[in-house]
Structure formats: C-alpha cells, structure tokens
Amino acid sequence: MYSILLIEDDKTIRQELRSLLEKYGYEVITTDDFAGAVDFALAQNPHLVLLDINLPFSDGFRLCRELRRQSSIPVVVVTSRESEADELMSLHLGADQFVTKPYNTEILLARIAGLLGRAYGTGAPRLLRFGGLVLDPERGTLAFKGQSAELTRNEMRILRLLLESEGRIVSRDDMMMALWQSDVFVDDNTLTVNIGRLRAKLRSVGAGAALKTRRGQGYSL
C-alpha cells in the first residue's frame, strides 16, 4: 500500500482528500506543523507528497525546494494560482506534477497513480481481480477460469473501473469521465457499443453473466 503525505492547511480539504485517497487504497498521513513539514516528511518517508503551495509560515515553493534538496520523494504541487508561470516555477523547484485548485479529482488521482507507477513501478504487472475475473492491464488481457481474451483500450478502461469498484454500481457518466481522462472522448452511443463488445468478450470466456445492467443507474459486476 502506498502512503501519501498530505501537506494542506485547509481542514475540510485535508479531511475530504484523506477520505478520497483512502477510498482509492492509499494510506494518508497529514500534519499541522507546516514549519517543520520538511523534517516530518523526511521522518515519515512517504511514497509521495501532496503539497499545497499556499501555506501559513512557509510557502510551498520553499518547502518543495528544501524537500527536493534532501530527498527524491515524488511531489505533486497543488495551487490555486492558475498561471503558466506558477506551473513552471513549481516544476523548476523540483515538483513532479502540478494540479490547480479547485481540482478535478479524476485528474488528481490519475496524476498520483501515474507518478507512483513511474517511481515505484514493480517488475511484476499488477493484476486486478474480482469475482473470478482477472485483468492484466499491461497486456490488456482478461482471464476467467483458464480462458482468456484480448481487450481493446476502451474495453480495458471500462472493465478496470468495474473491477476497482468491486461490485459497486458504476454510472455511465463515471465510465465516460474515466475514458475522457485518458484522452478518449467517447459519447453515449460509443459507450454503449464498447459495453456491448466487452459483454461479448466476457461471454466468450464464459463470464457472460458477470456484467450486470442496473437500469437507470449504470453497471456493476
């Protein structure tokens, strides 16, 4: 399990980010002591630091530089100043990623996952499993009871979302959101087609009943 150190002065944001990140399987560490944040970060040694640029006592830019001087922990900088200059500044100071407030949580999660994958990518591919289905995201293959099938990029994104939701309902809008975040700007009809194809592939490996349609709500496994 990856741990994320959250350096953010707004209490509500801290709480909500914590529950969001925990929902997605991260361990979250937070701190109130911004003056000593660098030492705290070094002591805790998390996998990633999520850093708000506007902090009391010490601004995030400096914190970022200090941290970078002593460690190579990946840093995602969050700021509410939306200008190209700020973005360049953070990247110059050693931040690995840059997100502007109020952020799109999909983008935030995607950046965090991308960064963690790049920094600590394990040799063995991470397999996603639920209800007997096994998805290998790197090879793009689906397996069920010894049979397997190849998935297209879109089918894989959809299945991945369903597997990650572990039986909870995923709405069509959420599926489209996920696809859009990976630069596939599908519309309603295309999504229907993609789901049809995914269902056919599930059937071909003998898991035809796995994908359930929840009328008016979405889909679930």
Partner: peptide, 27 residues
C-alpha cells in the same frame, strides 16, 4: 479569486465524496 478557490475546492471534494452530482454541477 485565489482565496475563494480553497473553499470551492473543499466543497467540491465534499461533493465528490458524497457523490452529489447536483451540488457538483452548481459548483
């Protein structure tokens, strides 16, 4: 604008976690 973005961001996270689409649309 800079200041108001923090409460908006907070409200948005609350909305996301509570899966409140109407509130998110208004935000």
């Amino acid at each position: 604008v800079h200041e108001i973005k923090t409460p908006i961001a907070a409200a948005r996270l609350v909305g996301e976690n509570a899966r409140n689409a109407a509130a998110l649309a208004e935000l």
